[in-house]
Amino acid sequence: MSDDRPQDPTTRHPRPDFPQQDQEHPGWTGPMDPPPDHGEESYRGSGLLTDRAALLTGGDSGIGRAVALAFAREGADVVFTYLPDEEKDARETARLVEEAGRRAVPVACDIREEEQCRALVDRAVAEFGRIDVLVNNAAYQMSQPDGIGAITTEQFDRVLRTNLYGMFWLCKMSLPHMRPGSSIINTTSVQAYKPSPHLLDYATTKGAIVTFTQGLAQMVAGDGIRVNAVAPGPVWTPLIPATMPDTREFGKQAPLGRPAQPAEMAPAYVFLASQRASYITAEVVNATGGTPLP
């Protein structure tokens, strides 16, 4: 049962220092200490997305799993992507969606490849007949504390193709299957505005996502389709032990003194996907734990 009483946001969830932990990319949820909270015990739906058809990338864990769970509890069916190495986590996301009484369609997909993006959209349309909500959430990062000289062309290409190309292709391919009232939500980051030097390439893509979101929103406004973004601050997901050299103090720099849990991000996506946000487009919802953004 959810506890909606006022709670101190600085102590509502675990605070660093955390144990040092390392995983191979892409990482998975099981070994994380403390375990991430996706809203399994707390998120209660109220029918905001009844019978919507959602397509979500990176839905196996972290923010993606929390969004899939919240969408399902709000009444949506969900097609979501995962990488083959993330199949165990993907099965858990599917279980949570189905437990909420909605359809889950997990699809192994590498969004760096245009044809895989095309097949993904085709699969979503075959399953649901349309796309009501597209959430571009999948991302890749790899910390390089040694500076730009340590960022290989291979890494730079992977970051851009995952974070930008995949989003571009999925928006372009999904729009013909979206009707007035549909919504696109992209995941940007606090890094778009306050880049950490060791995440130079990742931060570059997150800045581009803000610009892309605002431009596309104006392009499709006349079609009755809204385009927005969410900019998380530090969030406790498998990407952190899989890509960051030091997990012990992760999130301590936020004014609230801790990282967000994925469950704390999901309500922003629900709001932007719902009719309660019908006059909101070309906007970025900042969920940074207190870090001021422009």
Rank of each mutant, 00 (worst) to 15 (best):
Q7I: 08
P19V: 12
E24P: 02
E24H: 04
M32Y: 02
M32F: 02
P34H: 01
S42C: 02
T50G: 04
L55P: 13
L55C: 14
L56T: 14
T57A: 13
D60Y: 09
D60G: 15
S61C: 13
I63V: 14
A66V: 04
V67G: 04
A68F: 05
A68E: 05
V78K: 06
Y82W: 12
L83W: 07
A90T: 09
E92M: 12
A94P: 03
L96T: 07
A100N: 08
A100Y: 11
A100K: 09
G101L: 06
G101C: 05
R103H: 10
A104D: 01
A104R: 00
D110Q: 08
R112V: 08
E113W: 11
E113G: 04
E114T: 14
Q116G: 05
R118I: 09
A119H: 13
A119M: 06
E127P: 00
F128K: 06
S143G: 00
G149H: 01
E154R: 11
Q155Y: 05
F156S: 07
D157W: 00
N163Q: 11
S174P: 03
M178R: 09
P180W: 06
G181E: 07
S183L: 03
Q191I: 04
Y193H: 14
K194F: 11
K194V: 15
K194W: 11
L199T: 09
L199E: 14
D201N: 10
A203C: 06
T205Y: 06
K206T: 07
G207S: 13
I209L: 13
T213Q: 08
Q214N: 08
L216E: 06
L216D: 08
A221L: 10
G224K: 02
A229T: 13
A229S: 15
P234D: 13
M244C: 00
P245L: 05
T247Q: 07
R248K: 14
G251R: 06
G251S: 06
Q253D: 15
P255V: 04
G257K: 02
E264H: 04
P267E: 09
F271H: 10
L272R: 01
A273W: 03
S274A: 03
Q275E: 10
R276S: 00
Y279K: 02
I280E: 00
I280H: 00
T281N: 03
N286S: 15
G290N: 04
G290H: 04
T291Y: 08
P294F: 05
